[in-house]
């Protein structure tokens, strides 16, 4: 009950401020609600677009969550997605395969890229106790710039007519490696199904199995785990790599499902948004899908608002930041506590 109230209050505060800003600009007070309506059920494809954004958010949220379960703060999801995306694009160019195999190869390559980028951080944390917040955050810059450099230097797309190119991007991947889309009017693709399956399996493993038990124990009570005979460092290491793998998968799905190439800059903030998704879900694997869906709506609103109004799409970023702030501050806690105290008397 108090949990529901917490979400509702945070959303209400975000909505109120957004409406206030819009009305100061001369729009009607309900303008932001209208934007939300258009972004979700306004057109036949709006809802599909929300799901298209939900897909990478769900996976990057899951990547953050898995590491968080064992007590790691994986801020490197961003970079791991980048590397996963590039690997997935490159394998298609380097190794042309028949239809289904090409898709699988791309996904495996993406996962490998994510794991590869998580590996040094995981190893440093395990072997020397190096703080993973520092290593993952720093490697993000390396990932973004190195991938961009690599593409520009060796795999830059050939432009028809030999003109100069504006964005740094690889050639389109083989059609065989593309994830099938549901309609040509939306980026929504088979990746959603994949993400849902992965999230469901992860939720089951985390909540019901011995592995999940051990991961929770390691994250919440390292000394309890040691006492119970759980190999603490090994489990944390494994979870870190799985976290990287899920991030890599998110990158591969972006490449194979929507972008159909590696495009520098198009993946920005996907990893950090995943962190927000996981935080709002309070690191609960069941709540993750709902949280990803919510952020998917906001992401899609960002596109709609710039089309429908003259207001900057940053307004939506402000709203989501306000939502997070209000959620973290938990203003209703005071009300709930007072109400409880009164009932006790």
């Amino acid at each position: 009950m108090s949990r529901v109230l917490r979400y509702v209050a945070a959303a209400a505060i975000g909505l109120f401020v957004a409406s206030l800003i819009l009305s100061l600009q001369g729009y009607s007070a309900g303008a932001f609600l209208e934007v939300l309506r258009m972004a979700t059920i306004g057109s036949p494809y709006a809802f599909l677009d929300v799901l298209r954004w939900t897909t990478p958010l769900l996976l990057s949220g899951l990547a953050f969550l898995i590491a968080a379960r064992v007590g790691y703060f994986n801020l490197g999801v961003e970079g791991q997605i980048y590397v996963g995306s590039l690997f997935s694009a490159l394998i298609s160019h380097l190794l042309p395969l028949p239809p289904v195999l090409a898709i699988l190869a791309g996904i495996v390559a993406g996962i490998a890229g994510g794991v590869l980028w998580a590996l040094p951080c995981a190893w440093l944390a395990k072997r020397w106790g190096v703080n993973e917040v520092v290593t993952t955050l720093m490697l993000n810059y390396v990932a973004v710039l190195l991938c961009t450099f690599f593409v520009k230097q060796f795999f830059l797309a050939k432009v028809a007519g030999g003109g100069t190119i504006q964005t740094i991007t690889t050639d389109k991947i083989e059609a065989n490696a593309e994830l099938p889309v549901f309609t040509p009017f939306s980026g929504l693709n088979l990746g959603l199904l994949l993400a849902l399956i992965v999230a469901a399996v992860a939720a089951f493993v985390l909540m019901r199995t011995r592995t999940g038990y051990e991961l929770s124990a390691v994250g919440e009570g390292p000394r309890f785990s040691q006492f119970s005979g759980i190999p603490v460092h090994k489990r944390r290491f494994q979870a870190f790599l799985v976290s990287g793998a899920v991030a890599g998968l998110a990158g591969a799905i972006e490449t194979q499902g929507v972008l159909h190439s590696f495009i520098a800059g198009s993946l920005d903030n996907m990893g950090f948004n995943g962190m927000l998704v996981s935080l709002v879900a309070m690191n609960n694997p069941i709540g993750l899908a709902a949280s990803a869906f919510f952020f998917g709506i906001l992401q899609n609103s960002q596109l709609v608002i710039s089309q429908a109004t003259t207001v900057s799409s940053y307004l939506v970023t402000v709203v989501s930041a306000l939502f997070i702030l209000a959620f973290a501050a938990n203003p209703t806690r005071f009300l709930v506590d007072t109400w409880r105290a009164r009932r006790e008397r």
């Binding site: 038990y213 929770s216 009570g221 309890f224 005979g229």
Partner: peptide
């Protein structure tokens, strides 16, 4: 507290030691 049980998990969690 820190070794014998897991503070924020139900008792059955801590019952499973070993």
């Amino acid at each position: 507290n820190a070794v014998g049980t897991l503070r924020r998990r139900p008792l059955w969690f801590s019952a499973l030691v070993g």
